[in-house]
Amino acid sequence: MKAQMEARMLTRRLWRLVAYSLLILMALIFLIPVYMVIVTSLKNPIEAGQETTSWNLPTKIYWESFSSVWKELAPNLRNSALLVTGATTISALVGSMNGYVLAKWRIRGASFFFPLMLFGMFIPYQAIIIPLFKFMDGINLYGGIPGLVLVHVVYGIPITTLIFRNFYIDIPNELLEAGAIDGAGFFGIYTKIVFPLSLPGFVVVVIWQFTQIWNEFLFAVTLVKDKWQPITVPLAETAGGIAVKWNQPMAAAILAAIPTLFVYIVMGRWFIRGLLAGSIKG
């Protein structure tokens, strides 16, 4: 019996050793691209273009990759920042209101139009891009950040509504009814009872929308003029073009990734909740 226990302990220990080494191995594999992007971005253009030495450390650290890319892409980063701030704020507010209505006010037909709303977040945006384009032009919103904000807000309605709806459903109805007895109407209940409880919901939605919009490409490349392009567009061009100086696309990739990475690392727990919420079931 004792021998058996010991054997068990041993296998258990052995297994943990295996598990740790597997995890470390996987982590290293996942970090390969990170190593590559950092190393390449710190090489000078000639060194960075050499494929055969791509794994080597830079012979001399070349910060100019970042300064030159920064000079070039700062306006685009500013555009992205403007876009994300505007679109995330508005779509979080809209989603909160919709979620409140759908979770707490039995609207007739909701079971019919709610799935129709949700469908909007799965469609390939290629299927609407040509009419969208003409429409934006027609209402004079083609070309600038406001138009792009509108588009992201609209196509963000399904997911933000869904997240808030699932969040608000857990607020007990009694709480709301107590508010109603105190004389609060639709808005009173929202501002006094629902909204103050909404912080976690807002965090999840803001993180989700922030990363989605920052990372988006198709609308960015088709709906705005060069001057207002978000960061993903020039990034795709530097890499897709005739790049031989790979330090630049790599430095640009780092710049473009920092904001979302920052959000992810600082608020990782909420980020994961957002991810899970995105899978409907929550």
């Binding site: 384009f133 003409k134 934006m136 032009d137 083609y142 070309g143 003029k225 060069d226 061009e237 897709g240």
Partner: peptide, 21 residues
């Protein structure tokens, strides 16, 4: 708009012309 032989540029131009810009 960079890109060999102007292929990318022409796509962007078209969106702009179509957009009345």
């Amino acid at each position: 708009v960079a890109g060999g032989s102007g292929v990318n540029a022409r796509a962007v131009l078209k969106t702009r012309m179509e957009g009345g810009e």
